[in-house]
Design a protein around this nucleic acid. Structure first.
Lengths: 220, 220
DNA sequence: ACCTGAACACCGTTCAAGT
DNA sequence: ACCTGAACACCGTTCAAGT
């Protein structure tokens, strides 16, 4: 058994990740800086680089750590395949709704961390059981993912905007609509604010699933 | 007629916006800094603040300028309402595909600049003509918008990733899948890369439209 | 009225030196 | 082996001074 030599560590990866989660929760992606994180952990910014290659690796660590903690919801066994897809998508959205920064980190990968591959697996599995070829099932997953990522991002941005005091650019635009050119928007007027605050996520996934299943059975 | 006094301007808002567009095109949102922009225009960073309140206002200017230049596609008159929605959504996606930074700027507003309100108007109008109440038509527009924003962002990120040399995190994940736990993903294996490169945007909007129209006629 | 230089309060990251 | 201080090459923005 090799004896470790040298100075014993003051901080650990786990300390860093835990502190980073707290900052992310309280101040968002913007608020997470290496210097502030170091302060939270109780060292200097430079010490962090002993434990983490760079900020990108830290984000990946954060993602994996969160994904590992997300519980797998039990999907009731008597759902038909389409409803299983909807239930899995809603669960995925629920897992992301409090942590919109994750969507930024995920970016292009069309998927979450290793620990969250359960979501695509379930969605693809249910789609296949509904009679789709596996390729079409992957398309369904990706379409749902793009929709989910877009919805989460818009929701987070709307929440940020509501915290802002300044009058929205949007309000100014709606005050000056030409009803001749944009009759529907002008007719909606002040109701736009209220209508766009509604949670239509599930309506959307359900439409995607229904629409894709219908398209597939027509094509047969 | 009041005489203007003082030093004549060396640069204009138009110069600034034009230079900013070039930088955005060549280097993306990351590349646009006030100092670099000033260099491109031929002044100092601080001179920009005579013409633009701050970087946020500059982004809004950029957005409006681009939106004003986007041509309205003529939608053939003999499309049924559902196909009109699809055509408008595809046109909206096409207008955004080369300028993904716009989606970042738009953030929460669920819509583009004043000059691009034509898109929601057309989509809502077609949805209403297909027999939906206006509220449901707004929902349809928002669902399509979230899907579109998510797709554009993922597409841009995928393009960036392809430019990177380093082996993708995703590749490492797929090499170590447990087929017992994730049978579908394991079966897909190397095909994942190829399958997720496919353009499924139109399939997605079409499904959304079909699904929402079906849900509405069922409910009646 | 417009532009400039110096400065402020930040970033992520590197590197040589300390323990 | 780990941590620290000083430093580098950046940010957006302000402010007093110049033309």
């Amino acid at each position: 058994m090799p004896t470790r030599t040298g100075r014993p560590p003051k901080i650990s990866r786990a300390d860093i990740v835990a502190a980073a989660h707290r900052i992310m929760r309280d101040e968002g992606t913007q608020g997470l800086t290496m210097r502030k994180l170091a302060g939270e952990v109780g060292t200097t910014a430079m010490a962090l680089y002993r434990h983490v290659r760079d900020k990108d690796e830290l984000m990946q660590l954060l993602l994996d750590d969160y994904a590992a903690k997300v519980a797998r919801p039990e999907l009731s066994g008597d759902l038909d395949p389409g409803e299983r897809v909807v239930a899995a998508a809603v669960a995925m959205r629920d897992a992301l709704i409090g942590v919109p920064w994750i969507v930024e980190v995920l970016r292009a990968d069309d998927m979450m961390s290793v620990h969250a591959l359960w979501y695509p697996e379930t969605i693809i599995d249910a789609a296949v059981r509904s009679g789709m070829p596996r390729e079409a099932a992957v398309d369904m997953y990706r379409i749902i993912w793009h929709y989910t990522a877009g919805e989460i991002t818009a929701r987070a941005a709307a929440a940020r905007r509501r915290e802002d005091e300044r009058p929205t650019y949007r309000a100014a635009v709606f005050a000056n609509l030409d009803p001749a050119e944009l009759p529907n928007l002008a007719a909606l007027g002040e109701r736009w604010e209220e209508l766009t605050a509604r949670d239509t996520y599930e309506t959307g996934v359900r439409a995607i699933v229904r629409g894709l299943l219908a398209a597939h059975s027509t094509a047969m």
